[in-house]
């Protein structure tokens, strides 16, 4: 549904997006993740036809965004970053205006406006002036506007920025409701958002794809080499010796600060390879008869993986 082929964008001498390639099949919800300045908004602006790519091309449902621009744009519902709206207009007025831009007939507009304002939780604010609305409600107007002409493709640039936790939750429900009816691409620099709503995550850093996959896959990849935390009734020395004896253990870091608080000792264990050490540690401790009160894999969040992916990219870029 959305295809980006070797997208490149130069702003003067600055390379903002570097050879970006991806394909989003119909019905998929894709999270577009990256720190500020990674090239998310620039990529999105190229996909929606606001900015032309310096090289490469993108198509929306088979229509080239530059050569068949109007046909392609007709298929996109777009929420630009920071939700620009005409603040002097009333909500319904604004939605009528947007509907007209997309060539909707009056009857269709009236029916659809009722539908999308209900869906986005704006039913009580329909008659209000946009300038008087709270940030969260403005964001809802932005989303309502993107949904209005029932486009096959939804592109939302940072749709949850500025929402409070409850509104964020409501937004997540809305995306869940829209899943399957639209191909959705949403960008964010907030991970939990993407982690929970997206089928697939594309992480970009410095204008290139740093990693991509389902949130589960990324977490699996990230968890390899994760550290195990263990707490047992032993002295730090006993514990270190015992754990170091396990073949695949690389390093043991006893936590000395807690050692004095009784006979419990806590340690962090790192593996030599990507293996999960929990089983081996439990067996080793049980064999010597130590009492264990905690044993867990320090499961890395997608956030950590994301930070690592970005750091790696930076390292690659800075090495000559």
């Amino acid at each position: 549904m959305i295809v980006a082929e070797h997208l490149v964008k130069w702003y003067g001498p600055v390379l903002a997006v570097d050879d970006l390639c991806f394909e989003i099949p119909a019905g998929e919800v894709v999270g577009f993740l990256g720190p500020n300045g990674a090239g998310k908004s620039t990529s999105i602006r190229m996909l929606t036809g606001y900015l032309p790519p310096s090289a490469g091309r993108c198509t929306i449902d088979g229509h080239d965004i530059l050569n068949e621009s109007r046909a392609a744009r007709q298929k996109i519902g777009y929420l630009p970053e920071s939700t620009p709206l005409y603040t002097e207009m009333r909500v319904t007025e604004y939605l009528h205006f947007c509907g007209r831009l997309f060539g909707m007939k009056r009857g269709d507009r009236v029916a659809r406006i009722d539908e999308v304002t209900d869906k986005c939780g704006l039913a009580h604010n329909k008659r209000r002036t946009i300038g008087q609305l709270s940030k969260g409600n403005r964001q809802r107007v932005g989303i309502a506007q993107a949904l209005l002409h029932d486009p096959p493709v939804l592109i939302l640039d940072e749709p949850t920025s500025g929402l409070d936790p409850q509104q964020t939750l409501a937004f997540r429900d809305l995306i869940a409701e829209l899943r399957g009816q639209h191909t959705i691409m949403l960008s964010s620099h907030i991970l939990p958002e993407i982690e929970r709503t997206a089928d697939r995550v594309i992480i970009i850093a410095n204008g290139r794809i740093a990693a991509q996959g389902t949130p589960g896959e990324l977490r699996d990849r990230a968890s390899r080499g994760g550290a195990v935390v263990v707490e047992a009734k032993a002295t730090p020395q006993q514990l270190t010796e015992l754990l170091q004896a396990i073949p695949s253990v690389a390093r043991v870091e006893p936590d000395r600060t807690k050692g004095s608080a009784g006979s419990w000792c806590r340690a962090t264990v790192h593996a030599k390879d990507d293996s999960d050490l929990r089983g081996a540690i439990a067996e080793a401790l049980a064999a010597k008869g130590y009492t264990v009160r905690e044993l867990h894999l320090n499961a890395p969040t997608l956030e950590r993986y994301f930070v690592e992916a970005v750091a790696k990219r930076k390292a690659v870029n800075t090495t000559p």
């Binding site: 777009y78 630009p80 620009p84 603040t87 997309f102 506007q145």
Partner: peptide, 14 residues
């Protein structure tokens, strides 16, 4: 300035 131009120019108008 307000950014609404981006929304306008990404709708199917020339």
């Amino acid at each position: 300035r307000s950014g609404t131009f981006e929304r306008l120019m990404t709708s199917p108008v020339n």
